[in-house]
Amino acid sequence: MSERVVPPAARRRRRPTKQGVVLSEELIVETALRLIEEHGADALSVRRLGRALGADPSSLYRYFRHTDDLMLAIADELIGRTMRTWRPTGDWVADLRDLGLRMHAGALAHPRAAVLSSYRVTGRAYEIQAVETILGVLRGAGFPDAEAVRVYHAFVDQALAFGALDGASAAMPRPAQEAEDDVWRATYARLPADTHPHIAATARHLVADMRRTSYPAALDLLLSAARARLVAD
């Protein structure tokens, strides 16, 4: 897509596409998400999107100025899917743990899109809602403003980083995933104690643990450290 701007009032398409649907930002984002999961980053082309929507590719400019604008909308939609399902309870540790796990699950539901969007700052509605909500949870727990921002920053970056890491792993072909899992059994579990005593001593735990994500454990460590800092202050 190129840098063309259509005034918001003129964006809505009044006639159905060739497939009998009326274009909207929501439909375009949903279709783009599906194509990314099927074809990767190359799916974000105006030609491929137009073909999938049964629409003239130029009609997409009524909603998005270029593909990066669409990518930001996709990133914001992934945030929105988490925020729409999360409900706070008033227990700040439990609430942030639940939110973090939902963010991670959302990334695994759309692994390729999560990898592409994990480092983006959208400035859009759902991201703004998430920033406001998380800071509100932390300030409500009693964190001073500067500390609330530090914990917020660490919490969000951790969730996004694990989402991208585990998303990239989930997007690998199944044979490649299984081959990497086998390395722990075929290589690490067989290293001799006389040359690698620490690996040999923990081999059975490595084989069991390294095949799954460490995000819940990392999240618990982060929240425990944050709670300890709050109590200490």
Rank of each mutant, 00 (worst) to 15 (best):
V29H: 00
E178P: 08
T85R: 15
R84I: 14
D68Y: 10
V115T: 07
V22Q: 01
I79K: 06
P197T: 12
A113V: 08
S45V: 09
S24P: 06
L27K: 00
A228M: 01
D166W: 06
P175W: 00
A107D: 08
Q177W: 02
L27F: 02
A10V: 10
L99G: 05
S59M: 08
P8N: 05
V22R: 11
T17A: 07
R11T: 07
D166N: 02
G163Q: 06
A164P: 00
L72N: 03
I134H: 04
R65H: 00
E147F: 09
Q19L: 15
I28P: 00
H104E: 06
R112G: 01
R13G: 04
D194G: 00
E127R: 06
A148V: 04
L44Y: 03
T122I: 11
I128D: 04
A41Q: 11
P144T: 12
A55F: 02
R204A: 15
A148K: 02
V46W: 05
D91S: 12
Y215C: 05
A94V: 14
S24Q: 05
H39W: 10
I199P: 00
Y152I: 10
S224R: 12
L53I: 10
D42M: 12
E3M: 11
R120A: 08
P8V: 14
A218S: 10
D98E: 01
V151R: 02
A113S: 09
V21R: 01
T67I: 09
R87S: 15
L222D: 00
